[in-house]
Nucleic acid binder design. Structure first.
Lengths: 238, 238
DNA sequence: CTTACGAATATCGTATCGGATATCTGGTGT
DNA sequence: ACACCAGATATCCGATACGATATTCGTAAG
């Protein structure tokens, strides 16, 4: 894998204590992770200035790891740098850019679903099942109260499929898209619809049945339906 | 655009002197560019250690911009970092990884060709034409003498199509793949075949005729033919 | 109200330092 | 001869101080 997806990894706790001793994360990694958390939760507004000095003081570290984190974030498109002006949070994707995200997803994700149907390990299937079940239970209880959490689980579901398809390049490419999409959806208060949960179960059933063709079409329908849901939501007043 | 493709940009000279005064690149950017040039030309072998101190002395800058460049390169997968050990040039892609590159290209590039057929500007068409013509003239003269140059032009041709398709996300995603592929091809002495040049002309004709469907199928055939050519080449002794 | 100038502020990059860790080297014991 | 262990070395990680330069913003003049 070229770049580990630190945003929507399917198992946040997969770094065992034993490994933590052998390879604890660097300070730069920790600053990066905290900034990612803040950014994808919209705790820092789009366009806000991110001064190296201010962030370093806030996190209690020096400028060296802070710069490292910002450079990584810049490479992922979450922040932008302007010469002699500094870093700032990347502007919100416009609806046009959002359409481009869906265009690319629609090229890649049907194939990732088909690949997952062929190659998913039993553990990966269990992971997918638990995410889908968690979303179903949560939505049955109260869909509006778990808005942010459902959006996170939706990203985790798609990331888990990408991770199971056997092609790390596909996983990386989709990971970048999911981050952008996540921020967009939180900002525009785009809920996870009830239909999403049912579509996830359809996709999971096809993958579990080892039916690549059905997984592919289910995923394609899911993405196109999602695009239409969000466009309808954007047309409505906000 | 999220991340400017600094590897196979179609116009290396598009930074006019006027702009250079208004926004000269940072030292980190310059170090990054020089390292990219060295890496994609294989002037630094795969696996070689890249010490921050050594590179800083070599380029006549301090460690700060050198680290910035290495972090960017790491995010693009050209170098890898090991905690407390340092950076080194990323290992060569294995044939399996190479197949995964083609798998992803085959998902995206037919769509980028179709998009270019719909949206390419006259300037973009002229650019594509000049690249295709340059390759044709070069190959007619002596194909083995211009091996490296033809590989570069091939990447530029595909990058120009990606840039013309109207979706920066597609352009970015493909840019990463082209870099990996370029290095792989140079390392394994995989020539640009005569057929490649003719296939490029077919694709260009379909784009120029504003025929998305034909551009899409031509591109798909081109990529699959390329995969088969390289697999045949790998099977042969090296 | 608009424009221009200059001080304050922040960034970019340099230089240097110390602690922590990996790697290499050489010696010792079996 | 080989495995194993300890010390030396090189490098990275991070902190800090400083100068050069660009941006920003308040203020004054037209």
């Amino acid at each position: 894998m070229i770049a580990k997806d630190a945003v929507f990894g399917t198992r946040p706790e997969d770094r065992s204590p034993r490994d933590a001793i052998l390879q604890r994360p660097s300070l730069g990694d920790e600053v990066y992770q905290r900034l990612v958390d803040d950014l994808i939760a919209l705790r820092i507004p789009a366009g806000a200035r991110l001064s190296v000095d201010g962030l370093a003081r806030r996190f209690g570290v020096s400028q060296t790891p802070t710069r490292a984190a910002l450079i990584r974030l810049e490479a992922e498109g979450l922040v932008v740098k302007k010469q002699f002006t500094g870093w700032s949070v990347a502007p919100l994707p416009s609806p046009e850019q959002f359409a481009k995200i869906f265009e690319l997803r629609c090229l890649i994700e049907p194939a990732s679903a088909a690949g997952a149907a062929r190659l998913a390990s039993p553990e990966a299937l269990a992971e997918l099942g638990s995410i889908a079940e968690e979303m179903r239970a949560m939505a049955a209880e109260d869909i509006t109260g778990h808005r942010a959490k459902l959006v996170v689980l939706d990203s985790r579901f798609h990331s888990a499929i990408a991770a199971a398809c056997g092609n790390e390049l596909i996983e990386d490419a989709l990971g970048r898209l999911f981050t952008q999409m996540h921020i967009f959806r939180l900002r525009y208060h785009s809920d996870v619809a009830q239909a999403v949960i049912e579509e996830h179960i359809d996709i999971l059933a096809a993958i579990g049945a080892r039916d690549p063709a059905r997984a592919e079409t289910a995923m394609r329908g899911h993405i196109e339906a999602g695009r239409e849901r969000i466009e309808a939501h954007l047309d409505a007043a906000d």
